[in-house]
Design a protein around this nucleic acid. Sequence first.
DNA 1: CAAATTTTTGACCGATTGGACAAACGTTAG
DNA 2: CTAACGTTTGTCCAATCGGTCAAAAATTTG
Lengths: 211, 211
Amino acid sequence: MTTGTDTPRRTRIQQEKRELILEAALEVFSTNGFRGSTIDQIAEAAGMSKPNLLYYFRRKEDIHETLMQRLLDTWLAPLRELDDIGDPLTELRSYIRRKLEMARDFPRESRLFANEILQGAPRIMPLLTGELKTLVDEKAVVIKGWMRAGKIARTDPWHLIFSIWATTQHYADFDVQVRAVLGPNRGGDGRFEDAARFLEQLFLDGLKPKS
Amino acid sequence: MTTGTDTPRRTRIQQEKRELILEAALEVFSTNGFRGSTIDQIAEAAGMSKPNLLYYFRRKEDIHETLMQRLLDTWLAPLRELDDIGDPLTELRSYIRRKLEMARDFPRESRLFANEILQGAPRIMPLLTGELKTLVDEKAVVIKGWMRAGKIARTDPWHLIFSIWATTQHYADFDVQVRAVLGPNRGGDGRFEDAARFLEQLFLDGLKPKS
DNA sequence: CAAATTTTTGACCGATTGGACAAACGTTAG
DNA sequence: CTAACGTTTGTCCAATCGGTCAAAAATTTG
């Protein structure tokens, strides 16, 4: 048993081409959704013929599945890092900052995920009720501890996490709308710094005026 | 000239059937996106044959276009109502509540809009840079006035509006994820009340503990 | 080198897509 | 009743879809 089935053992070309395809598929899937994307589009974006692409991934769904598996790991990494050591407010602030950076640096991954959820998560539902729920419940316990210790205000930890996801991913998923509304001046490269400043203030102090 | 081209003059059956089709199309488009939806699906959901549907709407795009036009009016209504009269904090709080109610009562409309934006807003871009931007800029002025008057804390009005959109629409667009993470108990019908309570606290006071 | 293996391609397949069209059917007004 | 008009359907079409396959081309191995 030199090679198990769990070790695909791929050639150099296979590794390179598979990466090329996944990169192209990320671009296509994230802007058209799964059903809205065609193998031809992905193949063209990857610079190869359709049968050639299908030599590396036998089915369209295999590409999407591989993409989603990779995505979830990196996507949940910031939340995994949220830990009990250090000051709670600082911890939350850096979590928000990290999530916002991900929205800035990996908008396609965010949109790929959003597309999947929007359409009812038909391909990753088990991951949501399993791995994701477990992780969030775990971190909710941590946050509740902070509340009991009087380190942060008492609220619902789950909805707190939702609100962080929503506000940060908004800048990736609704990017066109954000840029359209902000216009060419305010909507330039500086919009993420503006968003970071605003979100920090919102989550720390809210909108009540300083009395 | 008793009938202009701008007055389609439709029979009773035409009005009813068109409504039936739009209702069915809202269901289908909101869960599959434009490209991912087929005329057959819509026709079946509306309980009629495909050629019959095409008698009322000549092209698939016409259905989507009609749907989007109607959507935007009702969708932006709450923001339009945001006015200078009354207490600013109360005004913002009721805007958040109204947006959350819309996410609860019209989730399909929210997802239809999200799908369109996610995919680059190819069909409504002019509306975003035109009507929508104008409205937001207008309301940003109102909010800035409240800040100058010391009624609410000083922040970026545009990003404030974005954060309200993001947090409220999240409960419609990412509904499956929210329910999956909250589980059968917390994710029941009460989740919108929980969200309302949380968001009110977040936007008013933030997370800093009461000292 | 030559043989074995991997990679690429063109041609092709059945299924589905958006849409056209004429004929059949139903309804309504005179 | 009947003619005009509105509605519905079955059939059909070209284009596109995901995917197959055998053969050619390129690469690796001995």
